[in-house]
Nucleic acid binder design. Structure first.
Lengths: 346, 346
DNA sequence: ACTTGGCACTCTCCTCAGGGGAGTGCCAAG
DNA sequence: CTTGGCACTCCCCTGAGGAGAGTGCCAAGT
């Protein structure tokens, strides 16, 4: 096993093989590489290089007398060192912009729009982790009395994005009181997370010990309830696209793939990891340590509201996927969603 | 082609064939019918009867020397005249009750729960049409000012079920005014649909011509906006279950099936039809006139809130499906959901 | 008139062998 | 280091052959 760097020729050949394999889905042979891309070298020479690349672990053979296909590490090297990210066309970019413009500014609508546009443009499955209450910054908070035990919390961000949630409370709070709490909390808000709001209330309570005590107490309680127990909301769209992939023509494999999407919780774990990372993330096959994802790759990027990362979006496809184009697509979408969530009124 | 009624023996044999086919998925031969269910008759006799049933159009042969499988009309006759609906076990019934109990009374949560429990218990795909604003009866309505052009409408039903929707408005209405409108509308509500509310306002306006004119005007406008342009919200769950069916082991067929689920709008059309009908509806294969449903059957039932039908729930599976059990499952679920939506606080 | 056993026939499905095709590894010469 | 040649391997398609399941029809029995 060699460990030193690849020669330019090896790089070039690896790149060609990966490109060919990604477009055709067939193992690529030395002859076709020679013929199609490197006319000045014979197939025998290519064969030698390919044998080297196999020894390094970047290529493998499905069977003894077939062409080569990239391994997970092969893709990894390609993604890290060989690939250049193309720019999306103006047309595509504006299609994304259209697709994510929520008609009413509801978070749910936005997430569905993102999921939809991602799977439409990629022709693979899309995954979107909904914006998290706790991580987002808000301009206004409202409480609506529902009944003795339940309150609807309505949060509005600077961008105009609206998110709602029902919370349970222990003691009856009438609507006028709720309005006072809303106003109080909203006065503290101003492009700040609920975590921060709670900190500020606690600081004030220690500070002032004034007549607002009870109001503050309840404001603290309600803001805590809003951020606690936030369930992971993940949207998966376009799973049927996966079924069109020739590598999953085998019914048994196809079932495995669908099992991966049924197991949302595992997907959420990977996405949560992406949430903690800056920038685009590509996870290839076995790298994810989730059994069901062995034959799949994930390309995901976090999106922000202001300076805070609030969610993740991406696509899931076969390992044989056009990483460059897909990376550009996901990256661009994440940027546009961030812009939407950060910018002025929707 | 005979048109008169089937003899008891023909009925019995048809029933046996359908049961066998539903459990095994294999064409049923005369020999196995004779052996397994009607020991006192020879296979030759059964063959004659089967030939008759084929002539009537209730059975068909995949190829010249195979057993028989039921046709769409065969299933139809079975469903209408032969089938008896079993009762669900206590255990199953309580599992449904568990599954549909929404922890916070949000309509969305409820719909997801129903979809989930239906696909889990049936092992097929589930479809749920969300409760319609316009058809439901409400106890309380609230408006939350979001910004110049948008208002969040929060509706609460007698059952405690909460539904929200963002609407666009033409002129700025401040929160205090919104609260007055909420109170006014809520005073008219009381187990009544928004349609009815509008009618009552109009009646009053004609009647009194009092100082509330402007308030009424706006109340009318907001209630109209709430019910108009209501988009069809359909949830589809457990589509992967369909992939487990042996009849769709063929990849091409499987793709067709998934295409059916991508085309939500067509499914909605069928479900909307069920909405106008009383009671359980079974639609078998080509009966639906939707191309993609040719190989699928739908078993659906409307659910109510009080006396008003507000939505539809059901399951989609292959034509070879245990109609009796599934009918019981769907019927029971619809009843329980109706009870939940009708009954006291959630 | 209905029921039955017998028989020839049909069609699917499985297996197995054979040949073409694609691609490899290795070697010796340039 | 590169190249052409060559033997070899493995997949995959095809066609033949046989087993299995089931039918339709007929003639005989009740």
């Amino acid at each position: 096993m060699r460990t030193h760097e690849l020669t330019p020729r090896e790089c070039q050949i690896l790149k060609v093989i990966i490109h060919d394999y990604i477009t055709s889905g067939e193992p690529v042979g030395s002859r076709s590489v020679a013929r199609r891309h490197l006319g000045h070298l014979s197939s025998a020479t290519i064969r030698n290089v390919m044998a080297d690349l196999e020894e390094i672990g970047y290529l493998s053979q499905p069977h003894a007398s077939a062409g080569r296909i990239p391994t997970d590490s092969g893709y990894r090297f390609y993604v890290d060192s060989l690939m250049q990210r193309p720019k999306l066309s103006r047309v595509e970019e504006s299609r994304i912009e259209q697709g994510i413009r929520p008609s009413h500014g509801e978070a749910e609508e936005l997430v569905q729009g993102v999921s939809r546009i991602l799977s439409d443009l990629s022709r693979y499955a899309s995954v979107v982790l909904a914006p998290k209450f706790a991580q987002n910054t808000w301009r206004r908070i409202n409480f609506v009395h529902l009944n003795r035990e339940r309150i609807l919390v309505v949060l509005m961000a600077d961008s105009g994005l609206v998110q709602q949630k029902v919370i349970a409370i222990d003691e009856l709070i009438e609507q006028p009181e709720l309005d006072r709490i809303s106003n109080y909390l909203s006065s503290i808000l101003g492009g700040v997370t609920l975590h921060e709001v709670r900190k500020r209330i606690i600081a004030r309570m220690a500070d002032e010990r004034d007549e607002f005590d009870r109001l503050m107490q309840r404001a603290l309680e309600l803001s805590s309830k809003t951020i606690e127990g936030e369930e992971e909301h993940v949207y998966i769209g376009g799973t049927a696209n996966i079924a069109h992939q020739p590598e999953f023509a085998d019914v048994k494999k196809m079932k495995n793939i669908f099992a991966a999407f049924e197991e949302k919780s595992k997907l959420v774990k990977i996405l949560d990891y992406c949430l903690t990372q800056e920038g685009l993330r590509i996870i290839i096959g076995r790298e994810s340590e989730v059994r069901e994802m062995r034959e799949l790759s994930l390309i995901a990027a976090p999106y922000k509201s202001g300076d805070h990362t609030v969610g993740v979006l991406g696509i899931v496809g076969p390992k044989r996927i056009a990483y460059d184009r897909m990376a550009a697509l996901v990256d661009c979408t994440a940027r546009l969603v961030s812009k939407l969530l950060t910018g002025a009124d929707v």
